[in-house]
C-alpha cells in the first residue's frame, strides 16, 4: 500500500516538475520577444522547415482525410438526408476537426520529433553547452524560432489542409455519387461560417505551439548518446500527440 502511495506521489511530483519546467522554457523563450526582428533569418529558416517542407505530407493527409470524411458522411446520409448536403457536412468536419487535428498530428510526427532529434543530438554532442559557453542563450537562439514557427505555421498548414480536404471530399463525391460541383460547393458555401474556420485555426495555433514547445523541451533534456536521442524523438511525438488530443477536447468544450 505504502509503495503504491509512494509511486503515486513520485508520479505527481514528476508531473508537476515537468509542467513547471516546460512553462519556464516557454516563458524564457518569449522573454526574448523584443529580439524577434534581429532573429528574423533564423525564424524564416524554421518557418520554411516547419511549414513549407511539411506541405507535401499535409496535402497528402488533407486530401485523404477529406475523401474519407466524404465517404463516411455519404454512408450516414444515405436514405435519410439528401446528398445535396454532403459538401456542408464534409466541410464542417474538415474545418473544425479533421483539418487542425490531423495537421497537428502529422506535425507532431514530422516536426516535433525532428526538433527533438536535432536539439537532442546537439545536447549529447555538447553543442548546446558550447552555445552557452559562447554566451548565447540556446533558448533564444534555438527554441524561440522553432516555437514561434510552430505557432504560426501549423495554422497556415491547416488552411491548406482544409482547402485540399474539401477538394478531396468533392473528388470522392463526384466519383462515387456523381454529385455536381455546384451542388457540393453550393452547400459548402451555404453552411460556411467564419466561426467554424476560426475555431479550427485557434485549435491549430495551440497545437502548433504545443508540438514545438514539447519538441524543444524534450530535445534540450535528452541524455546519453544515440539511444537517448532516439528515446527523445519518440517521447516528443507521444507527448505532443497526447497533448493535442487532450487540448482538442478542452478547446472544443470552450469553443462550441
Amino acid at each position: 500500500m505504502i509503495t503504491f502511495i509512494n509511486t503515486i506521489g513520485r508520479t505527481v511530483i514528476l508531473f508537476v516538475h515537468e509542467v513547471g519546467a516546460v512553462s519556464t522554457l516557454t516563458l524564457r523563450a518569449f522573454r526574448y520577444s523584443n529580439r524577434i526582428w534581429k532573429m528574423r533569418r533564423l525564424i524564416i529558416e524554421q518557418m520554411l522547415d516547419i511549414g513549407v517542407r511539411s506541405l507535401p505530407l499535409v496535402i497528402f493527409v488533407g486530401v485523404f482525410a477529406g475523401a474519407v470524411a466524404s465517404i463516411q458522411t455519404a454512408y450516414q446520409l444515405k436514405g435519410y438526408i439528401s446528398f445535396n448536403y454532403l459538401g456542408a457536412a464534409t466541410s464542417v468536419a474538415v474545418f473544425i476537426e479533421l483539418g487542425p487535428v490531423l495537421t497537428a498530428l502529422v506535425a507532431a510526427g514530422r516536426i516535433g520529433a525532428s526538433i527533438a532529434a536535432e536539439l537532442g543530438t546537439m545536447r549529447v554532442t555538447e553543442q548546446i553547452d558550447a552555445m552557452e559557453a559562447l554566451a548565447i542563450d540556446p533558448v533564444r537562439y534555438l527554441a524561440l524560432p522553432r516555437i514561434l514557427s510552430g505557432f504560426i505555421m501549423i495554422p497556415l498548414l491547416t488552411i491548406v489542409a482544409d482547402f485540399v480536404g474539401i477538394l478531396g471530399g468533392y473528388g470522392v463525391a463526384y466519383l462515387n455519387l456523381n454529385l455536381p460541383a455546384e451542388i457540393f460547393f453550393g452547400s459548402v458555401k451555404e453552411f460556411f461560417t467564419i466561426m467554424n474556420v476560426m475555431s479550427g485555426l485557434i485549435k491549430a495555433f495551440f497545437f502548433g505551439g504545443i508540438t514545438a514547445i514539447v519538441g524543444c523541451y524534450v530535445g534540450f533534456n535528452a541524455q546519453g548518446g544515440a539511444e537517448g536521442v532516439g528515446q527523445a524523438t519518440i517521447r516528443a511525438f507521444v507527448i505532443s500527440a497526447a497533448l493535442i488530443l487532450l487540448n482538442d477536447y478542452l478547446l472544443s468544450l470552450i469553443l462550441f
Binding site: 546537439m122 554532442t125 555538447e126 553543442q127 553547452d129 558550447a130 552555445m131 552557452e132 559557453a133 559562447l134 554566451a135 548565447i136 542563450d137
Partner: peptide
Amino acid sequence: FQLRRQFGFLFQGAALFD
C-alpha cells in the same frame, strides 16, 4: 552571459555546430 564572454572553452569533441 556577459561574464561568459571572458571565457573561451574548447570542448573535448570540439562541439562544432554541424
